[in-house]
Design a protein around this nucleic acid. Structure first.
Lengths: 237, 237
DNA sequence: GAGTGGTCTAGACCACCAA
DNA sequence: TGGTGGTCTAGACCACTCC
């Protein structure tokens, strides 16, 4: 249909794409330096970076801040309905998950969190920030906000583990109804910093508000995913 | 925490953000020309465009190909579970929806579509391409693939209407189980062209595979949304 | 210390849109 | 027809990574 303009950027994209598809650049492999690539394609770094940015938007390559460009690994499939926890989900897909605890403490809740958990103004909540990796690559920055009333003494637990597992083992709490909200947007600074991506890169923001088996609102999660690390599945009806 | 580098790009973002938040630029309003803005902020167009791209990634402004930059309207909330059809969903949120039929015909199915609909190789399917707008802004490019066996003569219907409604009225078919797959990625050329966005802009790709009330796979939709036009909701458990 | 990516400058030409 | 956005050039300096 369209006359297909002979754009330099498009040509570079196609050339790189072909190399990746034919396996000359393996998943996880590093691309040559930008200056080297701009010589190869006989163009400027600005133009070359434009092409890299497009492949990044497609999720085919990704960037580690100041370290260079890499071929993106396969996405993780995230099933909204049959929610196993992160480590199990990753393991079931033949990958290795790790979790790093960034911070955990009791603090006053923001207005937004109060509203989500239906708490009165200025309530205290337990805030747990964690970074999660798949095969060593940071893919998810998550903030958990727990209603402290249901989880006395949780700060003494090992919070790099699955929270779901601690909920059940220590408090006898299981998830009941869960509400999701999925928002494609740029990653905020905290998330971008933790994931080592440049601020303003596209990402996926998932908010989960969780009730327990008795219908009490127990906690909510703010998850920030690399946009290229995830595929969401759901079944309805 | 971080020393907050005095980046030109960040400074411009904040300045524009403030103007938007204080309503000096109304939703749908047009921003000044890029050259004008780069003068205002005393920088080059490249740098200024970098800032605009970041705000675009956040979904705060958007671009119409060759027409300029505009302040983004509120997102549409898309509920995965209680799926009313597009026009009803938009109307319920106080907006106006329109649908434009781009093409509709019987054609051989691609391998991917055959797999989704569990059809034998080289089956024919009805392919319907449509463009949907909210308040006049193109937000969704959708391709529907129907198993023709369940929809004889559907090409004679008015396909700018709700398909859900035609299914029920003409064929006595209602949706049963539905599978979703949500993928943040760059918009492919057909979608980008129809939505009038530059190729390679981020978007949200939603695949729906629909069964009817008897469990037959009747059709599947490939939806391509502007990343800034949508917020997805779901409830589970 | 060499090389890398991150950022920025100061221009240019073209195709398209609106007047 | 003038101004717009889309694209591209040919450099530069800095902070950081990696050796």
């Amino acid at each position: 249909m369209q006359p297909m303009p002979p754009r330099a950027v498009t040509a570079i994209c196609h050339a790189l794409l072909e190399q990746i598809e034919h396996g000359l650049l393996a998943p996880g492999g590093k691309l040559p330096a930008e200056r080297k690539l701009s010589e190869v394609f006989d163009t400027t770094r600005i133009t070359l970076r434009e092409a890299l940015a497009q492949l990044e938007a497609q999720g085919l390559i990704y960037r580690e801040e100041r370290r260079g460009w890499f071929v993106a690994p396969e996405r993780l499939t995230y099933d909204l309905i049959e929610r196993s926890h992160f480590h199990a989900m990753v393991r079931d897909q033949g990958r290795v998950a790790t979790t790093e605890l960034l911070s955990a403490r009791l603090q006053p809740a923001s207005a937004a969190i109060c509203a989500r958990l239906q708490l009165p103004a200025l309530s205290s909540v337990v805030r747990i920030c964690r970074l999660r990796r798949i095969d060593g690559r940071a893919v998810l920055y998550a903030e958990h906000y727990l209603n402290p009333r249901y989880f006395p003494g949780i700060l003494e637990q090992d919070l790099a583990q699955s929270l779901t597992e601690i909920y059940g083992r220590v408090y006898g709490i299981r998830y009941g109804q869960v509400c999701f909200e999925i928002l494609p947007t740029a990653l905020p600074v905290e998330a971008a910093g933790a994931l080592k991506v440049s601020v303003g890169s596209p990402g996926l923001h998932i908010t989960r508000v969780n009730s327990d088996q008795h219908g009490h609102l127990i906690d909510c999660d703010l998850e920030y995913w690399r946009h290229d690390a995830i595929r969401i599945r759901a079944q309805a009806g």
